[in-house]
Design a protein around this nucleic acid. Sequence first.
RNA 1: GCCGUCGUAGCUCAGCCUGGUGGAGCGGCUGACUGUUAAUCAGCAGGCCACAGGUUCAAAUCCUGUCGACGGCGCCA
Length: 478
Amino acid sequence: MTTRASTRPRQEGCTASPATLKTISLRKSHSLEKYFKGRFHATRMFKDIADVMTPGFSGKEVRIRGWIWRTRGSGKIVFPTVRDPSGAIQVTVKKGNLPDPQFEDALKALIESSVEITGTVKADERAPGGYEILATSFNVVGFAEAYPIQKDQSEEWLRENRHLWIRSRKMVAILKVRHTVVGAIHQFFRSRGYYEFDPPVLQPNQCEGGSTLFEVKYYDMTTYLSQTWQLYAEAGTFALGKIYDMAPTFRAEKSKTSRHLCEFWMAEMEAAWMELPEVTEVAKEEIKFIIGEVLKNNKADLEFLGRDISKLEVCLEKPFPTISYTEGLDILKKDGMDVEWGKDLRTLEEEGIMRHFDTPVVVTHYPKDIMAFYKPVDEKATAPGPVAKCFDMLAPEGGMEIVGGSERDTSIAELSKYLERDGENPANYQFYMDLRRYGSVPHSGYGVGVERLIQWICGLDNIKDAIAFPRTSTRMTP
RNA sequence: GCCGUCGUAGCUCAGCCUGGUGGAGCGGCUGACUGUUAAUCAGCAGGCCACAGGUUCAAAUCCUGUCGACGGCGCCA
């Protein structure tokens, strides 16, 4: 910044010569060095709260910092409970153990005030959590105003105040699980030789007929926010072979359900030379791997969320079954739910099928007529009508669709035919057709709804809690 | 897009059916209290009863419309 200022001193209203400016900037950098050094050591002096709540720290003096989570007190003693990202501990502030102004501050500090505390760790049965810190210093860094989130909270109010609600133990637990899920997806694909391949977010065409897209003003033209990476992934897979990505996805449908977002993260893969049977196995392995990582790293978080962990553990032990759409209808028929062959499975029916399973299930070979244009007909399949080489993965406990994928049609004639069926102009898919002209091979891919997966793993009622700042048809704030 | 539920204090709600000067708990503020666990006790402040019309001597309350939030279905990950 100093360099830039010195090149245009007049504009900055500065009359000093360039030489003077140089001297000033040197002096500044000396004090900066001191400043940086000081802060660096300060950071190392503070302990994580979870770490000091162990027998080894009893009787020792520590420094912690965080936010007041709950507080209560009387005239001469205050009990703020302080949280940091690792945990929460009760602090006991007694008048006389620290300077009076600090005691007054401790008494005055409202919930979510930020604090730095020095004191002795003590195991004490009277303290929630079994440990407390007897404060000898209580420094309020930022006094909080009356916190809007109290014990009585409506869903609407919590969403209105999402920027504050993410500090809650519930949201922190979910966000930690999310961190594991996202990391596991990268780890899964990278360790198996997949390349990360990033598609454009602004895309000129829609890909799955019927879905509503968000329009974006692009200079004096119109473009759309991506609702899938697929068309671009198919191009990428003929360059890199096996690819994956995790990216924001946008759907403008006005869905009002507990499992839809307008902006969500989709983890997708695409692989050349891969056909339907193999791609379904990759999807099963991926979901299994993610569950395993969450169970390894987030048991405490799942327990806090009240999740029945045995329902996840069983998914590691047992193979995920694969059934066809037609077999799915047979299962429903035995339960007295008659679905006409050719109709898509609705939420109710998916739920009905999944009542018979305690692991995720892959459902393949849906009727071609109700499937997207790029899902090829399986000539070898035996079914009452033409079926596509496609699959969904349904989660147990409700039958939510967590994965959707397919083999990709390589025939220009077939693709054109079904684009026209959907009222699309094949001419708008020039580059997609090109991929079929220059050495096409069988290839397949699928997408995982990251928030849906998190919703199921955490056992959340609503998908809006699986992401920090949910975007729906009726909410785009905060 | 269709169907349903709900809008009253900063928050959570009662009051509405059967019209007659707007309530409680929590939180905030003031005071008391040296071991609290959602601390307790006393007091104070805080309201365009979503908005707009209508009926009526009189509307938070009855009627009509609008807006907003939430959920179910459809669509999908």
